[in-house]
Simulated assay, not measured.
Amino acid sequence: MTINASLVLYKNDPEILKCVIASTINTPLDIKLYVVDNSNYPDLEILFKDINNVNYHYNNGNNVGFSKAHNLAIAKSRVADYHIILNPDIYFDKNVIPALINYLESDQEIGLIQPKILFPNGDIQYLCKRYPTVFALFARRFIPKQLNFLFKSYLDWYEMHDIGYDKVADVSYLSGCFMLFRKKYLDEVGYFDENIFMYLEDADITLRMSQKYRSVFYPHVHIFHHWAKGSYKSFKLMLINIKSAIYFFNKHGWKLF
């Protein structure tokens, strides 16, 4: 069994980054990690110097975005049975990847799987979503928290609270912070859409996968995710988010509510 993983960097906190590196290399499976660094300088390369099975690629200061960088890593990794997309702000126990692969091995209809995702304090991150709507994206980004109660039932529906996050479920929009693909199905449906710099690239690829194969939420193992929510803090990232949403809706169809 061949397992590859890709990790895209951009000015990351080294201490947080060490956690995902340790999680990956401590997994009791042979995983080749492909790292693409979009940072201005290759300062983070030192973290990978003495680690076996790591291919580090520095983009010479060019930030090509999440989608294109992961595609570069996937292209470098070539043939594999499974490919894992990792965020630099996650960490997990050594049993997570083996458990997910065991479940994939039991059902050949599954092309993509994701575990339960928790905040570092143990609270659930409701990252399974239904097809994006204009209102859901607007409400989550722009409506003040003190007014969220007015739309709670709608946002809970969008975030699939009704599944309880305690049973296996098919989901058409999984988070890009951790995605485990059956590689031959990923090759078939296509990699990340490079027209999306970042944001909603995960919605696009999950939707394309779920149109041919199962995209599954598997709650019996979990990862931890710091979840920086960069677009909530940066005007530039907010504009990138809006541009990605317009592209996504033009590609797949607009849905207001």
Rank of each mutant, 00 (worst) to 15 (best):
K243C: 08
A75F: 14
F249T: 06
D193M: 06
Y131R: 08
N102A: 10
K18V: 04
Y191Q: 04
S210C: 14
L180P: 01
D37R: 02
D81T: 12
H83N: 13
P115Q: 04
K212G: 13
K76G: 07
F217M: 08
I240N: 08
I3G: 00
F197P: 01
V216N: 07
R140M: 13
H225A: 02
S244T: 09
P132E: 06
D187C: 02
M160C: 02
P132Y: 14
L100I: 09
L174Y: 01
A73R: 01
F149M: 09
L239C: 11
P132S: 07
N55Q: 14
K76Y: 09
T27A: 05
P28K: 02
A245Y: 05
Y232W: 06
K236A: 09
N55E: 15
G61R: 03
Y91Q: 04
S77R: 08
F217L: 03
D50T: 10
Q108K: 12
W254P: 07
Y126V: 10
A69F: 00
F149Q: 11
Y91I: 06
A228R: 06
P14E: 01
N59F: 02
Y185K: 06
S23Q: 06
D50F: 10
F135K: 05
S244P: 12
I110K: 10
C177L: 02
K167R: 05
N60M: 05
K18M: 08
K49D: 15
G190V: 02
L155N: 11
W157V: 06
K11M: 15
P144R: 06
N38W: 02
Y199K: 00
W157Y: 14
K152D: 15
V36F: 13
P132C: 10
N55M: 13
R214L: 10
L207T: 11
I117M: 15
G176L: 04
K255V: 07
Y126L: 07
I31T: 13
S77Q: 08
M160E: 02
N87E: 15
Y213K: 04
H220Q: 10
L180H: 05
L33N: 10
I74M: 13
H222R: 04
D50Q: 11
Y103G: 10
I124D: 14
D93E: 11
F249W: 03
V79K: 09
I46Y: 13
F249D: 07
T27K: 01
K243G: 09
F257V: 02
L137N: 15
K167L: 03
F192Q: 03
R208A: 05
K68G: 12
V221N: 12
A80T: 00
R141Y: 00
I21L: 15
E15D: 12
N26W: 09
V64C: 12
I223G: 08
V79P: 06
Y103L: 09
A203Y: 01
I246M: 10
R214A: 14
M179N: 01
F138T: 00
L200I: 11
P14R: 05
I16G: 12
I97P: 00
I84K: 03
H83L: 14
Y199E: 07
R182C: 13
L17A: 11
F48W: 03
E201V: 09
N26S: 08
Y232G: 02
Q108I: 11
C19Q: 15
C19E: 13
N148P: 14
S210A: 12
V8D: 01
Y199S: 09
D170N: 14
I196C: 00
M238T: 11
L47E: 12
L174K: 07
I97R: 03
L150R: 00
F249G: 12
K255E: 05
V216W: 01
Y126R: 14
M198R: 05
